[in-house]
Write a protein that binds this DNA or RNA. Structure first.
Lengths: 206, 206
DNA sequence: CGGTTCGTGATACAGCGGTACCATATACAG
DNA sequence: CTGTATATGGTACCGCTGTATCACGAACCG
């Protein structure tokens, strides 16, 4: 067969095209044709690699999710040992914030999908409850480890703190995308929060 | 002229229809026809009171915004004096959270619009930077008043705290809408946050 | 070497959505 | 009473979008 590129690779290429279109013009501008044009393939090819639009959208979402996971793992892996929880969390959150173009696209598309999932039951189940929930657990684990290391006060509720961090970050990210504040200002709020969280070990406060 | 109902009233009626459709089936399901059906008027009437779809969408957004302001004012006005900042903030945030059906619709539609505004420059300017920005200022004022009253530690940055509260609330609201957690759990996180914020006056911590 | 499967192209079709146009009824001005 | 502006109904049109269909080349299998 005339396999110039791998099947999975082509699907990824098209999925990335979708992400670019969605990031630039919004998810409502995502059509079979616009994705095809953006990916540099014909309409027929999009149809071929994704049988329906629903599957295309679904596939692109999984693509995003996979990337997100890889980023988390990579970040966790290349951290200098011993790990400073404060620095890890800060760097993680700053990446989730739309600081660069890539982060902006990621956050925007993810949020678009989340809004879709609020009404479309087909999208709801899989990524939007399991993905963030897992992320929250992992973050809570990091915080618990920080408690064991004496870096975080013992009386903190690691789960609640993780939830707080992610919700805060998401909310700030949205405010940035909407143009309410700059990414720099958002980062300042994040640091303010982290200052309260990882306070001088003497005081057991936020 | 055969004015059975007031012009502004009709526009409001149609706008509410739009909000219901958007809350139930998502903003992508909002069409001239679906809004007309939901509002119990003919397609022609929607066209008549809103010349284009863009204006319809825009008008409904302003409708939502106005309602939001009224709610804020009403809440602020009917508070028992003296005002407990903690209780005020908690009740305000709980309303902004999708606890009841109305709150759910409001949050969902607002978020949908926010996502739209991220790519559509026509929507961006007006409500999505000015509205929340004003809200944040008002909230910061409440917090500053609380500081003056000795209810909130002096070393807090009222602006940052207000930003934190709103971002947190928005993030939590989204997580509720996608089904990641229940409204009850979200409220617990909010209270956790507030506990840290309004700590015993002895300690100056989060 | 012939067939079958995979990959790619072009295009046709049907439905839906925004908008435009025509018509009418009611109320008020003169 | 007549005309004009407001308010409402019905419907046609055109473009876009998802999907289906026909067609062809290239590789692998036997």
């Amino acid at each position: 067969m005339p396999r110039t590129v791998d099947h999975a690779e082509r699907r990824a290429q098209i999925a990335e095209g979708l992400v670019r279109v969605a990031a630039r013009e919004g998810l409502h501008a995502v059509t079979m044709r616009s994705v095809a044009a953006e990916s540099g393939v014909s309409l027929r090819l999009v149809q071929y690699y994704f049988q329906s639009k629903a599957e295309l959208v679904h596939g692109a979402l999984r693509h995003l999710e996979r990337q997100s996971e890889e980023r988390w793992s990579a970040r966790l892996a290349r951290l200098p040992r011993p790990v400073s929880a404060r620095r890890f969390v800060e760097s993680f959150l700053s990446e989730a914030l739309p600081t660069d173009e890539r982060g902006r696209a990621f956050h925007l598309v993810w949020t678009s999908y989340a809004v879709l999932a609020m009404t479309d039951p087909d999208l709801a189940e899989q990524p939007f409850v399991e993905g963030p929930r897992r992320l929250e657990r992992q973050l809570a684990d990091v915080l618990r480890q920080a408690q064991a290391d004496g870096e975080l006060a013992e009386d903190r509720d690691a789960s609640a703190e993780a939830a707080r961090l992610l919700a805060l970050n998401h909310g700030l990210g949205t405010s940035v995308l909407v143009g309410q504040r700059s990414a720099r200002e958002a980062m300042k709020v994040v640091r303010y929060h982290l200052d309260r969280l990882f306070e001088t070990p003497a005081r057991t406060s936020d």
